[in-house]
Design a binder for these strands. Structure first.
Lengths: 205, 205, 205, 205
DNA sequence: CATGAATGAGAATTCATTCAT
DNA sequence: CATGAATGAATTCTCATTCAT
């Protein structure tokens, strides 16, 4: 996360158009799925002609990449603020997971679209353009865990492994929420946070 | 899981061809992704003409559904044996997660293809045909947790919530393994199992 | 009409198979239309494998041609008997039209299939193989009319033109019957016969 | 007949393209028959790429329906003017049949294509979309006959039956003309009109 | 800037036919 | 004799992209 803004050299109106199209693309992918989200569909939802998209974006690929990048950026901005406000490792881990889930919960379509694109989009050569995004995330979380272990807040664990587990568990939870129609994300978030607490804290506190 | 076998009334050679095509489809989806896995691609990998697929399967849908169903069936057969062999709830939870991860680890392409299809395939009306598969899974795990709580093995938790979390965490882990090229699934499985142990066991044993 | 039988040199069982397949083809074309009547459909209705058809007939074309030819032959056999039994031209015209409509009325599927094939079937070069069949028919009827005019039964008309009109009117009637669900063929036949009577008979008899 | 124009909201150039494609489709169906008239063939005749057709029409169905509808509309406009100009029932019947045959005679390909489509086109469910078109026609003609009977111009007949016969006879005549290469439509029209005259008029005027 | 128009590549599927068994 | 299996050609349709206006 923390991808830099590509907006240099774009006029204001250009920016607005791109934002409008990205919003339409987000809704489209969220509603009908990556495989069915054709430029036609996106253009229809944006109430714009198909060729406008080709005009403002290099192609479908750039549009989708931009959508994901922006969503990552926004999510991280929200999370970072809340993580940095916490003094303890325990607090930071909770803030991380909690704020991430909260942000996604508040931006369902954005999350659905992002997840769908991230897991489906491939370069012409077959590689996944977003595969490494989560690596950075794990590294960030691992530093927090490491600090917590060193400070004695947490029991002794391998920071990187545990960070990975925590992040993947949160992702798993989101998957469950994304699909199920009756999934109480807030409640399950609490269960997961409690779960993590118990797993990390020293056994005889 | 536990879907019944549809093979009645098929000749041996027909069975073999279907298996061959399903294998090719598995590799194809695993390698180039659901969205790019056209019948052409699958046929090419099976070294067979496109229309052979239409001959042996009702259509692309049936092929993919069959692929997923078979993989589910095989996975569950492997898991069930190991779960039932465990006398304690703790052992059963470990066996469940452990055997699932082990089986998937040993059948990477099958898992990749299954996961890709399950998360992307939609009926013409937009619904997801495999959406409820994981519900059953959660129910099964919930029963084990409930028994463990009642027997005093586990601390008091809501069985369904925790079952859901555990399953989603395992899914999350698989997601990490599926994508990362340097992900040690066995090691991470141990970490997750330890993680679950700590989260479930009574605080002062 | 009056096409000769092509059955020389066929075994009895061969004949039976061909008859069975032709019957199935008749029902198929009648029910789902020429354009949708694939060999698959015909084979399914005949409860026979597709390749049996290819074995017993040179191809789809020969099957359809045979179907039409046989239906023509049978129809004409029925008509001829009734026409020749009439001593007067008036009676012969009535017998012609009446017996034709009666036979078709009693063999609806046969008629529907024949008509559908005759009007749709084309040689690879685009020509219609059955185009001239009705020419012979008109010639036959024209002879009757001519005799009737010469004998003074009918008013003076051009035999060929009137024969053509009568035959085409009967065809038109059949078209109406074939499509409409509530078309009383017997009743309309009477109206047509009366119509023809009035058109042919001398004004002051 | 009398279908309303769907052209609102189309640009001029779009209209022109549709007209061009419809013309090409007309020639194609007339020449090679409904069953062989693929989009490829039509596109080739229109000197246009296949996908242009899909761009301008919803699909093959819409194209063919539009073709038929336009031809019906044009034919009826021509006929109506001539029928309404006649004061007597006799004149109206003659005008009806005469103008219809004349219009078709002047638009041979249009007629051939229309007839081929009307008798062959089926909805996916197997029903015929144009089956009821001729019902309306018969009703219109029946009213004229009824008026003629009431005014004493015609002998006493069942208006609906006779209307049906007349229309079907005209259709039959067209069938003969459509197929035969040496069919003098004008001459045969006169014979048919004379035929109808004799059949309808009072016996001792 | 915006867009209607056009297009070629590729999608799934159907079909008549051939052939080894 | 009969047929399951296979295939290549053809069908309709969708899509991302380009281009002149």
């Amino acid at each position: 996360m923390g991808t830099e803004n590509e907006s240099r050299g774009r006029t204001f109106i250009e920016q607005a158009r791109r934002a409008q199209i990205i919003a339409a693309a987000t809704d489209t992918v969220a509603e009908i799925g990556y495989a069915n989200a054709s430029l036609s569909q996106i253009a229809a939802r944006a109430k714009v002609s198909k060729s406008v998209i080709s005009y403002h974006f290099e192609g479908k690929d750039e549009l989708l990449k931009e959508l994901v990048t922006q969503f990552f950026t926004d999510t991280w901005a929200y999370m970072e603020e809340r993580i940095l406000a916490e003094p303890t490792a325990t607090g930071q881990v909770r803030a991380w997971v909690g704020s991430q889930l909260a942000y996604f919960g508040a931006h369902r379509n954005g999350f659905l679209a992002m997840a769908d694109i991230v897991s489906n989009h491939r370069e012409p050569d077959g590689s996944r353009p977003f595969a490494e995004a989560s690596r950075e995330e794990v590294d960030g979380m691992a530093e927090i865990i490491k600090a917590g272990v060193e400070s004695g807040e947490f029991r002794v664990v391998d920071p990187h492994s545990v960070a990975s587990i925590i992040i993947l568990c949160a992702e798993g939870l989101l998957g469950g929420w994304a699909w199920g129609e009756s999934f109480d994300l807030d409640a399950q978030t609490e269960v997961l946070l409690d779960f993590i607490d118990h797993a990390l804290r020293k056994e005889h506190p």
